[in-house]
Amino acid sequence: MHELSIAVSIVDIAEKEAARRGACVEAVHLRLGPLSGVVKEALLSAYEMACENTPLAGSSLMVEDVPLVVYCPQCKQRRTLSSMNFLCPECQTPTPEVLQGRELEMFALELEDAA
């Protein structure tokens, strides 16, 4: 269960960004891939805990699931996988090359200007 330390990092980064812009954080937008090693549900509850007694208390965490995308060397195409079965869904060739799916990225903040 390392989601709490991840949540603390998220709050930390968001707090600094908001302070730099003289604003308060309403929401944090995160992109999360299935290979990030982070469980969304655990992260959401950890986020609330991590926000307590910080300027982010009451803010929300919006998580966008990033699909797992691999490169099929046979089809020479990007393929989206629906599970962790690393086979091309079209031709069943093994697809070790991961193009997308490791993301644990904060991509946007919703800010409200401090009164």
């Binding site: 812009r21 990225e105 904060m106 991509f107 946007a108 903040l109």
Partner: peptide, 12 residues
């Protein structure tokens, strides 16, 4: 609220 792009890896 305004939306600001950040684009930062959380484990940077």
């Amino acid at each position: 609220p305004r939306l600001v792009e950040v684009r930062q890896n959380v484990l940077k």
